[in-house]
Amino acid sequence: MIHVLSNIGIVVLTFCLMECVTWLTHKYIMHGLLWILHDDHHNKTAHFFEKNDYFFVIFATISMCFYFVGTFVADFGFMFYIGIGITLYGFAYFMVHDILIHQRFKFFSRTNNFYFRALRKAHKMHHKHLGKEQGECFGMLYVPMKYFREAWRTKK
């Protein structure tokens, strides 16, 4: 039972740490070295797919490497559960960022949840900057308190 709980703990911890990884990657890699892939996310094109979508492939590949090593090298060791945590965060990212915020698929278009209003505002502030400099709100699930206050003031 302790082994199962520790594996669940690894998944949950990895999921939480992925918010930090996302923030750092978004700020220093997407808005830095690999801006060429992220640029079309801030400066929209008529295409459904963006070069920015390659980041999904990059993170999925990293997750698959953890699955592979955790399964075949370590006999379902802790690296397998790290892969699960990364995958779950990727799914959450897709649901929140691509579906809820950017409405790439028209699900949940009328949600009026307090947290989601704050999240959308923070993301809107991130996208007000069309270049790679002077960005803000680089995370995905973490929302600074000022956007919660604003969401509270503008509740519908």
Rank of each mutant, 00 (worst) to 15 (best):
M1A: 15
H3W: 13
V4H: 13
V4D: 12
L5V: 11
N7K: 14
I8D: 03
I8S: 04
L13C: 12
T14D: 00
C16S: 09
C16N: 03
L17M: 11
M18D: 01
W23I: 03
L24A: 10
H26T: 00
Y28T: 03
L33D: 09
L33A: 15
L34Y: 09
W35I: 10
W35V: 07
L37S: 05
L37N: 05
H38A: 07
D40F: 10
H41Y: 12
H42F: 11
H42E: 09
K44V: 08
K44I: 10
T45S: 13
F49P: 01
E50W: 12
K51Q: 06
D53H: 07
Y54N: 12
F55C: 06
F55A: 03
F55H: 04
I58C: 13
I58L: 14
I58S: 07
I58F: 15
F59L: 13
S63R: 07
M64V: 14
C65Y: 15
F66H: 13
Y67M: 10
F68E: 05
F68A: 15
V69E: 13
G70K: 08
T71H: 11
T71D: 10
A74E: 15
F76Y: 15
G77H: 09
M79H: 10
Y81T: 07
I82S: 04
I84R: 09
G85Y: 03
I86V: 15
Y89N: 00
G90Q: 05
G90N: 03
A92R: 00
M95E: 04
M95K: 01
V96E: 05
H97S: 06
D98N: 12
I101W: 09
H102V: 05
F105I: 11
K106D: 02
F107I: 06
F108Y: 04
F108D: 01
F108W: 03
S109P: 06
S109V: 10
S109E: 05
N112K: 09
N113W: 04
N113V: 07
F114G: 01
Y115A: 05
F116L: 11
R117P: 04
A118T: 03
A122M: 12
H126Y: 07
H126T: 02
K128C: 14
K128A: 14
L130S: 13
Q134N: 15
E136K: 08
F138K: 00
G139D: 00
M140N: 05
M140G: 05
M145T: 14
Y147S: 01
R149C: 08
E150W: 10
A151C: 11
W152F: 15
R153N: 11
K155L: 14
K156L: 14
